[in-house]
Simulated scan of single mutants.
Amino acid sequence: MAKILIADDEQSIRNAVGFYMRKEGHEVVPAADGDEALRIFEEERFDLVILDVMMPGHGGYEVCSAIRDANPHIPVIFLSVKDSAIDKNLGFKLGADDYVTKPFEPSELVFRVNSCLRRGSGAVLHKSGDQATGSDDGSIELGDLCIEVATRSVFVSGVRIDLTAKEFDILLLMARNPNTVFARQQILDAVWGVDYYGSAGIVAVFMRKLRQKIEKDPSRPVHILTEWGVGYRIV
């Protein structure tokens, strides 16, 4: 069972989402606007947050930024009537793990919530051949990049880098299989889950975010390389 914060200024949406989350066995805490969501988030611990983008007071983007400052790992899902690529890209840049447009099928949101909560379960793809230095439950070292698996911590040249849950899961998947080329769909299935309904294009957004955080020059990456027309690999 997970504890989920649901922030939306429409009571009907809060009630509907809450109903389906409780059917899944999750505990739900509703918030009617962004200000209330921030206050509740500061007072209680949550496993996942669902945010409406357009709310009175602080909007969903502002709330997400504040949540990311406090906890870079908690999964955040946006709900919004804004369905343009620009709006979705902004949501992901601010640290969202998923973006669901209204109106939506309750079953789709349930799939996406459960996928986020599983974060990384089954996301390890081992093979013989190249292996990173370290162990599965210890640390993985690739050049100046160090991943501490148990604490989900990442360091570049000794400096800790804050990653979101999905960013970490993608990095860990690839780091456990260095020089293995992963197609976008493979990453999507491993990290978001095979029941994820969205486009594999979301993977490119997260790769850009990862490079901005772990590469000295994201335009000339040395860790995460693109194999054009195929996918990505880490070296």
Results as ranks from 00 to 15, higher is better:
8 D>C: 03
16 A>E: 13
20 Y>W: 15
22 R>C: 08
23 K>H: 08
28 V>C: 13
30 P>D: 13
31 A>E: 03
31 A>Y: 01
32 A>G: 11
38 L>Q: 04
40 I>L: 15
41 F>M: 11
52 D>M: 03
54 M>I: 07
55 M>N: 02
57 G>T: 04
58 H>P: 04
59 G>A: 07
60 G>W: 00
63 V>A: 09
67 I>F: 12
71 N>Q: 11
72 P>H: 09
74 I>K: 06
75 P>E: 11
81 V>D: 14
84 S>W: 07
84 S>D: 15
96 A>M: 12
102 K>G: 09
104 F>L: 13
108 E>G: 04
109 L>C: 08
111 F>G: 02
113 V>Q: 03
117 L>F: 05
119 R>I: 01
122 G>H: 08
126 H>K: 13
128 S>P: 10
130 D>L: 13
131 Q>I: 12
131 Q>H: 14
132 A>W: 00
133 T>W: 01
134 G>C: 07
137 D>T: 11
138 G>N: 10
140 I>P: 06
142 L>M: 13
142 L>K: 09
145 L>D: 04
146 C>F: 02
147 I>P: 00
149 V>W: 05
154 V>A: 04
154 V>D: 06
158 G>F: 05
160 R>K: 14
162 D>R: 10
162 D>C: 08
163 L>C: 02
165 A>I: 02
165 A>F: 02
168 F>T: 02
171 L>D: 01
178 P>V: 03
190 A>T: 00
194 V>D: 10
198 G>N: 08
199 S>G: 12
199 S>V: 05
200 A>W: 01
201 G>Y: 07
214 I>E: 07
215 E>S: 10
219 S>V: 12
220 R>I: 06
225 L>H: 03
225 L>M: 12
227 E>D: 14
228 W>M: 14
232 Y>Q: 07
235 V>L: 10
